[in-house]
Design a binder for these strands. Structure first.
Lengths: 413, 413
DNA sequence: GCTAATTAGTTTTCAATCTGAACTATATGC
DNA sequence: GCATATAGTTCAGATTGAAAACTAATTAGC
């Protein structure tokens, strides 16, 4: 189930432009301006600031802010004495008593967290769980328990939950809430009962791809603060990706863009689970790196730790395996950069712990295959770690709320 | 010089939502609805039709249409007697007495044409000219002459020229009107004096990439009628491309997306003029195909004709050369389809005459590298020929007019 | 302390624009 | 020729933001 409740009708054509739509747009503008100002926690914007920032008049801002206060999306936070002359303004903030839930189902764990509208992660719980091959209902039941705990805690803290987002490592159809294919969970064509997780949240719950979420988390909480356009590559069991263009996720016509793991990097390469061959995943996925480095089979976390040790010790096989992965990552990134006119790459997932070794190899490869397109300074390693997908899912949900405030407001009806 | 005169301020943030903006949006809706209805020439839409189609009331439509008639963008075309009961409506059409100029500078020729707002190509002139290595001013002077002829003819036919678009085979910066690099013309960092071509057109003149224009022409006048999302690959001296997503061109963050010719398809492949190596262009560009087929050097058109003969005669070297090109096109298309979630490919340029032979090779390659993503039926060969880029440039310009009608209307001031 | 200056926010008036309903115009069908 | 149906216009009413006047609360200077 998608939570997109845009101003569009069912026809695909935009709804007729009525005078009321102007107000809807301006409510969104106010919230967008608040979200943008969020980086500066000391000086909360006042109505007058918002008027300057949005170009609206003070009168309009007052009226719009009143409506958003009423809907509980904004809150006043005391007068701001800036020491200047004149009447002090009243500070405004995105409400910390409303929030959204971010959730993640991964191969080895499930997780859920609560993000308030101000963007602060207020609660965060992770539960180890071997989900590979488990039935979707049983995993959803486990997640449901986690979410109920969080909902209870939120309620105790006086936080109302407005919506949520769930990230899974696979191709999803956000509109229908189904997982088309999640090879690492061994799920295929699975419809998830999303409504049951947050039955009373007015914005419902949306389903997202994990790597896409991680890419957005990088935008909102990581290096993305400096980057507006980049390819995010997430190393997991497979290799996932997310394309950020103009500070927004490029989801493609059917919401499944970013599958950089199946870009062909070696036409004569080995067969891939996707049915093709020569895919990046066969050179940069976990199994490829571990076996190339001569690391014995076992749990992924153990193998990753072992690889880290060997890299730190300067083990030749480990260094070569990681360099090879970086080389092929560079080929895929070079092609992507040409195709989509991108100028930055961010690596996450299992690439993060091998960052020190894989980054130079990737940089060399980029210089070899697409000189001048992506400078060395624009190859970054994510530092968000395991919470990235959860943050991205929650952030997406948060943005959905801020983009449709009229759902909670008189203008919505 | 870009002709984007959106409602945005210079800040990158949308302009404040005023009540007047509703009307601007609705003027655009009316024109968009007219452009959409254009496929059915017999039954021209009436005001009542537009009211139904847009969801606006008859009263609003009447008022909006009056303004557009006044601005000369729409025209009445007699009452439509449909045989039904009731007062017959007055047919409306996009004005055929306003138009835009499409222009193209290519290696072997220049061309210009006039498209009326209804989308009919009213005039079309091509001039053979060896432009490789010629100075930009001299080529622009030649094009200027062609455009003056067309302007005179338009004037004689009572058609007012509102704007235009120029397609060149290279990377362009549309905002500044400069050609960053056009290797086949041997131009690099060239600022073109676009204003001089159409000094009095209210919408000015925009600069576009040739392959992008051809991709859009395919959307508006070719197979694109069935496709909303596809990769267009244009074979010229190099290999260009255009990405169409949701019936719109994906231009990328800096307007230079679609460079499929420099996707890496063979990591150990030969060096490329772009500085990288193993690019698709080295396997599917003209020189690669001709030399692989054993065709002696000479003029491109002669060599292409020769290749056609050899293919028709079943010459093994020619067939092998084209198959190899198709194979590598498939690799690049497979990667692109994964990355951007595309499901169709259209080939144009020099691939059109070799279509019968290259299509099966491309289909085989797609089945090998990305099975299930792009069905055989969604691999098409363009039939627009040499006029594609010109049509695309003119069409882009036409759409710019329809997307900013208030430029010519009281609401614009 | 008192007054002027300054900035924040509200109230009032006005113009733009859409909707909806009533109305006029012009066909077809019997 | 009259009923019916559809196209298009006119006009009152509602929503909304802009602009300007106004009220509120603070600092600066004496």
């Amino acid at each position: 189930m998608s939570l997109e409740k845009s101003a569009e009708g069912g026809t695909g054509r935009p709804a007729p432009g009525r005078v009321e739509d102007v107000r809807r747009g301006n409510l969104i503008r106010i919230l967008a301006s608040m979200a943008e100002a969020r980086t500066d926690p000391d000086t909360r914007p006042t109505r007058a600031d918002l008027a300057t920032r949005t170009g609206l008049t003070k009168a309009s801002v007052s009226s719009l802010v009143a409506e958003l206060l009423d809907a509980g999306l904004l809150a006043e936070s005391g007068t701001t004495r800036d020491g200047e002359r004149g009447r002090p303004g009243v500070g405004l903030e995105l409400s910390t008593s409303r929030g959204v839930v971010g959730m993640e189902i991964n191969v080895d764990y499930i997780a859920a967290g609560l993000l308030d509208l101000g963007g602060t992660l207020r609660i965060h719980r992770t539960l180890e769980s071997s989900n590979r091959g488990q039935s979707p209902p049983s995993v959803m039941a486990l997640l449901g328990g986690l979410v109920r705990d969080i909902a209870a805690e939120a309620s105790a803290a006086g936080i109302e939950i407005l919506g949520g987002g769930l990230a899974v490592p696979g191709l999803v159809d956000s509109a229908s809430g189904t997982v088309a294919s999640a090879p690492n969970l061994q799920w295929r064509g699975v419809g998830l009962q999303l409504e049951q997780l947050l039955p009373s949240a007015p914005f419902g719950l949306a389903l997202y791809n994990e790597a896409n979420c991680a890419a957005l988390a990088e935008l909102w909480y990581g290096h993305g603060l400096d980057f507006r356009d980049y390819l995010f590559i997430s190393g997991e069991v497979g290799v996932g990706g997310g394309l950020v263009i103009g500070s927004e996720l490029f989801a493609g016509p059917r919401g499944q863009a970013g599958e950089v793991g199946h870009v062909v990097v070696e036409p004569s390469g080995p067969d891939c689970s996707c049915g093709g061959h020569g895919c990046l995943e066969a050179f940069a996925g976990q199994e490829a790196v571990f076996s190339e480095a001569g690391i014995a089979p076992g749990a992924a976390s153990v193998r990753l730790a072992r690889l880290g040790e060997q890299l730190a010790a300067g083990d030749a096989a480990a260094v070569a395996a990681v360099s090879r992965a970086g080389h092929y990552l560079g080929i895929a990134a070079a092609s992507t950069a040409r195709l989509m006119n991108l100028s930055a790459v961010v690596l996450g997932g299992h690439f993060t712990p091998m960052g020190r070794w894989i980054r130079p190899a990737l940089q060399r490869s980029l210089a070899e295959y697409a000189p001048g397109l992506i400078s060395d300074a624009r190859v970054e390693i994510s530092e968000l770690g395991q919470s990235a997908a959860l943050l991205g899912a929650a952030g997406s949900s948060l943005r959905a709320v801020l983009a449709a405030p009229f759902t909670l407001t008189p203008a919505g009806r």
